[in-house]
């Protein structure tokens, strides 16, 4: 009897011990992620801030000339390029994504959902260079050779379309979660008042899921702002204010990726300053999306 109790004790002790070890490992993993983020932030700031202090922020944010070897560090063309391309991507991705999410979450029969949802998730797994490749081979020539469009083909339009497709998995996935989180009792209540299915979707389901959908759009935006490779391949990358959708543009990400390999001195640090701008935009978008989503979750409870 005593033996058994003693044995159970040691068994429990080892169980506790292994629990503790696992807990430690998980903590370590969590902290290393946080630390990595902190180190990246520090690194970018350390490399980029001196040149910002040196020349003043207006040298970056108030100048349209980017010629780092000759002392011009204006990021405005790239900021505008990123803005145009992102807005274009949302203009394409938002209606398509929302339509897709509504179809999948509300309208499609169960069987179709089981096939379509994994396919959309697959879309997120395609490497961005493949999107860029398709854009170069099909989209760019298409834009160039259509009489009504014209231009070099490498353009803000091409980048917007490619990005519009690339943000779909983000927008659709998160919107579906938001739509599925809407309680069935809302739908029943609406139908019982004589609403059709479509009236129920527009009258109750979408308003109830609104903040989740807003979060989806903001995260999609973050994805568009941060995308690099596919954009470089189709945007043309000329440093100029985007005067037309058919003209080439350069985004912030492209600016860094294209020049980092050979930049030295102030030029390299100016690229880090580009990184700071990008970093702030991305983190803000994520923070806003997080806020919007958690606010909603609290109100359903």
């Amino acid at each position: 009897m005593m033996m058994m109790i003693a044995r159970t004790r040691t068994w429990m002790a080892t169980a506790h011990l292994s629990d503790a070890v696992i807990e430690r490992c998980l903590q370590l993993a969590a902290w290393s992620a946080v630390t990595t983020l902190a180190l990246i932030t520090l690194f970018i700031l350390r490399e980029g801030m001196p040149v910002v202090f040196d020349r003043g922020p207006m040298a970056f944010l108030g100048d349209v000339r980017w010629a780092p070897t000759r002392g011009h560090f204006g990021l405005l063309p790239m900021i505008a390029g990123t803005a145009v391309v992102t807005a274009g991507a949302l203009l394409i991705g938002l209606p398509l994504g929302l339509a897709g999410a509504i179809t999948l979450a509300e309208l499609a029969p169960m069987k179709a959902r089981l096939v379509l949802k994994p396919m959309i998730e697959l879309l997120a797994g395609i490497p961005s260079v493949v999107y860029g490749f398709i854009g170069m081979e099909i989209l760019v020539p298409f834009i160039r050779e259509r009489g009504t469009l014209g231009g070099p083909g490498y353009s803000a339009l091409a980048a917007s379309i490619i990005l519009g497709i690339m943000v779909l998995p983000t927008i659709i996935g998160i919107s579906i979660d938001a739509l599925e989180a809407v309680p069935k009792s809302y739908r029943d209540g609406s139908r019982a008042l004589g609403a059709t299915q479509w009236q129920t979707i527009t009258g109750v389901v979408l308003p109830a899921a609104r903040s989740g959908i807003v979060a989806a759009v903001i995260l999609g935006m973050g994805r568009a702002v941060g995308e690099t490779m596919a954009v470089i391949m189709v945007a043309g990358n000329a440093v100029q204010f985007p005067g037309s959708l058919l003209a080439p543009v350069r985004t912030l990400t492209a600016n860094i990726a294209l020049e980092m390999s050979y930049a030295t001195g102030a030029h390299a640090r100016a690229l880090f300053a580009t990184g700071i701008v990008l970093f702030i935009v991305s983190l803000s978008l994520n923070a806003i999306a997080g806020r919007v989503r958690s606010g909603k979750r609290a109100s359903f409870a």
Partner: peptide
């Protein structure tokens, strides 16, 4: 749809929509 307008239903758990009082009744 017009049948359900003539035969109203109240559910087990109160299920007002996440809208204003006015928009609920005007729905």
């Amino acid at each position: 749809e017009s049948l359900r307008r003539r035969v109203g239903m109240v559910f087990q758990r109160p299920n007002p929509f996440p809208l204003s009082v006015f928009d609920n009744v005007a729905y």
